[in-house]
């Protein structure tokens, strides 16, 4: 299968793959913005227990968390034009990227809304009571007391979701988008050096994931500078103090549990 292994190809493929890094990051960036927006819209009716809307939000989340992103991509790419045709909107000429970003945005949005809900709920009820007791309005209590604390709690999950999104974008090639994975497949079939291309591809993803994770870790430290490391003194089974337990739980919590 393919040509014999030649490590030099890895290095020559790296710059070629990087030419499409922009497309990958573009998908990640816009989907992320859409996802945060959707996440807030979907989380609010659940946080404030708005009837009907809350049920819609739950079904939305259940669907987008309960089906594979790959299926969602096809579903929106083929289905949306047909559904919109029923209301006489023609999107058949919309660029593929539009469908891709829409799908990833809606998909991430479901996870984001869970993250937002979990982090807001994680802020101690006593914090709001203290704010009320001091005479703050509910908006002041939310924006000045709850939100800043919820942000810090959310970062590890957010970090996990951004990286999951980055990895998920590798499926955009199935709709013919020339992002990094699509480019890698083309390079592979032209040169017949598949292994080398995919090693180069994996390396790029690895470096981006790693960088994102480190950047968000810095953000988390800043947002949680008020918490003494490991202050809720707990002795765990762990024989080491490698990272905080809260962080690990958060990373796995409402986030994506592998795959993608």
């Amino acid at each position: 299968m393919g040509a014999p292994f030649d490590i030099s190809y890895i290095f020559s493929f790296l710059p070629k793959l990087l030419t499409t890094l922009g497309t990958t990051l573009l998908i990640v960036g816009f989907s992320l913005l859409a996802g945060i927006l959707v996440g807030f819209l979907v989380a609010l009716p659940r946080l404030y227990k708005v009837p009907v809307l809350k049920t819609f939000a739950e079904i939305y989340i259940s669907f987008f968390r309960g089906t594979p992103i790959l299926i969602q991509l096809f579903l929106f790419y083929y289905g949306l034009p047909e559904i919109l045709k029923l209301v006489h909107v023609d999107v058949t000429r919309a660029p593929v990227l539009f469908f891709v970003i829409l799908t990833y945005g809606l998909h991430t949005g479901a996870f984001m809304s869970e993250m937002i809900r979990a982090s807001v709920t994680a802020v101690d009820r006593g914090q709001v009571e203290a704010a009320y007791a001091a005479g703050m309005t509910s908006f002041q209590a939310f924006s000045r007391i709850v939100l800043p604390q919820a942000l810090g709690i959310a970062v590890p999950v957010f970090s996990n979701l951004v990286i999951a999104l980055l990895k998920d974008t590798s499926l955009a090639f199935t709709l013919g988008v020339m992002e990094m994975t699509g480019k890698a497949q083309t390079l592979g079939s032209i040169s017949q050096h598949f292994i080398e291309t995919y090693i180069a591809l994996a390396l790029i993803y690895l470096v981006i994931s790693f960088t994102l994770e480190k950047l968000l870790l810095v953000a988390e430290r800043r947002l949680l500078r008020h918490e003494v490391p490991g202050s809720p003194a707990r002795k765990t089974f762990g024989l080491q103090k490698n990272g905080s337990y809260r962080r690990m739980i958060a990373q796995l919590g409402p986030g994506k549990g592998g795959g993608g």
Binding site: I163, S170, T181, Y198, Y205, S209, F210, G259, G260
Partner: peptide
């Protein structure tokens, strides 16, 4: 593994 897509 966690830093790269499952597809790769």
């Amino acid at each position: 593994i966690r830093g790269t897509p499952m597809l790769t």
